[in-house]
């Protein structure tokens, strides 16, 4: 069966992803820029500010809020060290208490608080997160540079987690073999696959593991 051509910025079937975090990926970034086919100008450089909601009791649902919109992805499977995540839910503030109770808090896998309002604004929701002992809203700023290597969507990004800086590189595609070739071509063989949730937990001290370098 012919593989589906990936286009940056467009929706495809669920992708597998290799991502890692550290402080120095200069060599991988250089190779990525040289091996990439030309990509649309809109992905050359993108910046964003987001909040990730991390939970002490959950590593399988990844919740982020950007521009007043909440987006939760859920871990589906790992194949050959590559991770597949699918969208679980999307919502825009104000969010109904019913949605928080039945979809959002279950994704955090923590005790569900009592809700005394019908819907919650962004500020009200963030206050609830602040008051929950097992949850934390982590500020994540990104400066992302997009590429396309071996038909996989790639990026190198500077990321600031609560103001402290790390670098991430990734390769994602529906095709496992294309990602594996890209990992090899970028000199990243043997480097640990670290997703955003794990990187954030390591920096804020919720995991005692180190970043990749």
């Amino acid at each position: 069966m012919a593989k589906e051509a990936l286009k940056i910025g467009e929706i495809s079937k669920p992708r597998f992803e290799f991502r890692t975090f550290g402080r120095d990926f200069d060599n991988a970034a250089y190779l990525m820029s040289r091996l990439s086919v030309p990509v649309p100008e809109k992905v050359w450089e993108r910046t964003s500010e987001e909040f990730y909601i991390v939970s002490k009791t959950n590593d399988i649902n990844n919740t982020k809020i950007r521009d007043g919109k909440m987006d939760i992805k859920t871990f589906v499977q790992e194949v050959d060290g590559l991770e597949q995540w699918n969208p679980l839910m999307k919502a825009e503030f104000p969010i109904k208490a019913e949605t928080l109770k039945k979809e959002v808090y279950p994704a955090f896998m923590v005790d569900i608080p009592s809700f005394d309002k019908e819907s919650y604004t962004y500020d009200e929701f963030m206050e609830m997160i602040k008051n929950h002992p097992d949850l934390q809203a982590v500020k994540v700023e990104k400066q992302r540079y997009g590429y396309m290597v071996n038909d996989t969507i790639c990026e190198v990004a500077n990321v600031w987690i609560n103001g402290a800086s790390v670098v991430t590189v990734n390769s994602e595609s529906t095709e496992l073999e294309d990602i594996k070739k890209t990992i090899n071509d970028l000199g990243l063989e043997g480097v640990e696959n670290i997703n955003y949730l794990q990187a954030i937990k390591r920096v804020i001290g919720w995991s005692d593991k180190s970043l990749a370098n």
Binding site: A137, V138, W160, N162, G163, A164, I204
Partner: peptide, 12 residues
């Protein structure tokens, strides 16, 4: 950095 206290607005 570790999120143990609130971030001020200019902590960007």
């Amino acid at each position: 950095i570790m999120g143990l206290v609130s971030l001020p607005e200019n902590w960007k």
